[in-house]
Amino acid sequence: MKRTQLRKVKDRFFTWLMRFFLVTAAALLGLILLGIAWRGVGALSWEMVSQSPQGGFYLGKGGGILNAIVGSLYLALGATTLASLIAIPVVLYMHVYARGGRLANNVRLTLDIMWGIPSIVYGAFGFSLMIFLGLRASLLAGIIALALVVLPILARTFDEIVSMAPRHLRETALALGTTRLEFLGVLLRQTAPGLLTAILLAFGRGIGDAASVLFTAGYTDNMPESLLRPVASLPLAVFFQLSTPFPEVQARAYASALVLTILVLAISLLAHFSMTRLGRHVIR
């Protein structure tokens, strides 16, 4: 009898322990978001998000971080586009031409491993590539390095979504006499909302990544104007403003971080929304 009770107590203890850990983690997440919001809202103003830095911005004078916001959007947009050009054919090849084979599994493994490579390594590689091609720190170089970072994220997310497509789709399509390419079109139509989710997730990750663009995109106080000129990015704006000794400028770093967090969270929510709500042509 006593032993049974002990077992029950143990069971309950560990259940509550696990719940405790989970709740603590959730509370920490809340704390991060609230903390950033609390410190950021005070310094956030219309001027911050609608102007480029003016002279003496890093000494506490006027201006904003519009250059970094636009720069980050350009970088992430370019990188996601470049990455989709490679990732979408790769995933479709895995599911249409090489389904269930060893090749598909090996590509999947490669993508998982690429996902694990730190973005600073991609940055260093991008930097070498840049020197090799004779480029200087520029939007283009930043896009290339960032594309490498988001490529595995985009490809693996899309891959997961394509593998959830119903099996009979393939059999039905091929039995009607379609070529593989025509079946690919059917599959793409079926998974289009998921593809959007994957692209948005990659986009959000691209906006937040700093280590890869540190060497390759450089930094500038001007608005981005050419593919071959340096470009500012939001994470680096936070970082540089924070490293100044002036409290007013540091407050701006909190505001920039808030803008960055809101952007990333909004994209994340949008990604979730596109997965669950879109899909007029999806067979369920």
Partner: peptide, 28 residues
């Protein structure tokens, strides 16, 4: 013809991805 073109071009993308890690390591 379209089908085999698609097969070859997406196969090229697969090849690029497979070689990428090696290229990065070799460059470094």
């Amino acid at each position: 013809v379209k089908d085999s073109c698609a097969r070859m071009s997406s196969g090229t993308a697969v090849l690029i991805v497979c070689l990428l890690v090696g290229v990065i390591a070799a460059t470094l």
